[in-house]
Nucleic acid binder design. Sequence first.
DNA 1: CTGTTAGCGCTTTCAT
DNA 2: ATGAAAGCGCTAACAG
Lengths: 330, 330
Amino acid sequence: MPTQPTPTMHDVARVAGVSVSTVSRVVNNERYVHDETRAKVVDAIAQLGFQRNEAARALRPGQSSDTVGLVVADVANPFFSAIAQGAEEIVREHGHMLIVGNSGLDYQRERDLVQEMLRRRVDGLLVVPTAHDHAELHAELSRWAPIVYVDRAPRGVRADAVVLDNRAGAQRAVDYLIQAGHQRIGYIGGDPAVVTGHHRLAGYKQALRVAGLDFDQALVRFGNHTAEAAEETGVDLLTGPTQADAIFADNNRMTVGALHAIRRVDGGAGLAGFDDVELADLLPRPIALVTHDSIELGRRAARLLFDRIAGTTGPPRRVTHRTQMLIRGG
Amino acid sequence: MPTQPTPTMHDVARVAGVSVSTVSRVVNNERYVHDETRAKVVDAIAQLGFQRNEAARALRPGQSSDTVGLVVADVANPFFSAIAQGAEEIVREHGHMLIVGNSGLDYQRERDLVQEMLRRRVDGLLVVPTAHDHAELHAELSRWAPIVYVDRAPRGVRADAVVLDNRAGAQRAVDYLIQAGHQRIGYIGGDPAVVTGHHRLAGYKQALRVAGLDFDQALVRFGNHTAEAAEETGVDLLTGPTQADAIFADNNRMTVGALHAIRRVDGGAGLAGFDDVELADLLPRPIALVTHDSIELGRRAARLLFDRIAGTTGPPRRVTHRTQMLIRGG
DNA sequence: CTGTTAGCGCTTTCAT
DNA sequence: ATGAAAGCGCTAACAG
């Protein structure tokens, strides 16, 4: 059956034989409504299946849409879906709803999404920013609603952000590879412009430096946008002239690719990676993983956002979540 | 800096020295606006950073909120996040936005979420229903907006749904185990009330029947709600009096649990599972997986929904997606 | 206790 | 080509 127009308070009022204001009072559980009148209204509401139009309600001054927007690169990536999970949890606790959009790491789309969400008058935004400089975007849009950045701070802006301890995490994992006797550790990274990559690379370099190993630019390969690309890069690192004997993978997609590469090459290459990957513990060979609670990351970002929505002012807050290294598999 | 109130068309009109109707015309790209006037308005819009309030716009008769709701059990589960990914893609193509909620497979929460989304006047709903009877819920709420169910049809209702070929998929995987010489195949399932489990169990039974094997109720264990629970169940099946020599896992979480169980027991138990699991191909022992394109599942459901939103009437449509069996790992 | 009124931000006749 | 005015569904004074 085709859908019907939703009944309004006016309809309820007519059926109950009262005025709309009385209906409004009943719906909002206000005092000073005669029990009898209330009963009539409640009946009419049930009979019509009335549900208050929140969009209309939000139009009143001082009211809000009770929605929050979340922009991630790609909800299908376990890292981002964990963020979404955590964010949804907090958002629901606050009686809000979550609008989700995928930027695909495309700046234009990110921009469009944020703008569209603002047009819907979200109370705030959680954004995993693309690599593009955000100075303009942030200045232009954060006037209207608070924005909290997740996983990485955008370029060109000092703004609220909840991030991971990328550098220390990467350093630790790379150090593990070094301690295991590897000397030529390849670095497989994603978009070179994304700042997390830079920090993780810094951790990689630091580990080499501490161990007194030389840094070889040929071992560093950014620009892998899928696990498949990372796999090819991994094979090349391991079998090509670079002669890598281990790999550090920049994020979960890269790790999956690296695992396949190592399997194809079938040498004794070592592997470490940023982010956890499901089933890594069942793999035949040990892998060092920089893990973190990404659901909590989403929660923290959402809490910070609601803090701002509640009116908390002050300088940009930067929350850094710790990571830990786990040796899984083997 | 705290956020400012968003400028309205009225503000723009004042700055541009025209009336709100003229601003509206410019914003909506209507003809019959003098170029000079248009320029003034465009300037004012840019100066103020005006963005049309979509909520207010949607209030006008005949207009819609251009939003769609998606209710899944848990976006962090790769199966559901893939659905979200596919849905988001189509929703965006239609110029809409996606509101996401997690039901946690709790009927009351599902109900609350759907109702809340309806209050926000979503144009339609995509729902992965809980196990509860939906006769009342569906009858009550589908009057206001079209609902398309994803992954499983709700109990007690004939409604639009996009589902998988659960029975045939399970049958094929179980048959694979039988052909591999296994005789006592344990079944690890989730919520016994979820209909997909029933269909998959039917496929399991059918495979046994075809092969002339007896069905043993003791081998069937529903009620595992996490991978950890599935692991314990798996260990019990393999080492307990049931003496299972293989396991069929009902869904991706169960498969992860079963993998751990088999690893703990360390026998030569066979394993098959519904849904794909990342990295399964790298595991040391072969596993039969019933795979499917779950992103496409989300896309199909969303397309069907927009079909209804566009006004297509007719009897409930049931779309069944094919599955395929892959032997991964080994 | 309840109804009348005004108005939120926007679109849409209807005049001019 | 532009403006005035009404109204979408709801809430919030303000009367009574």
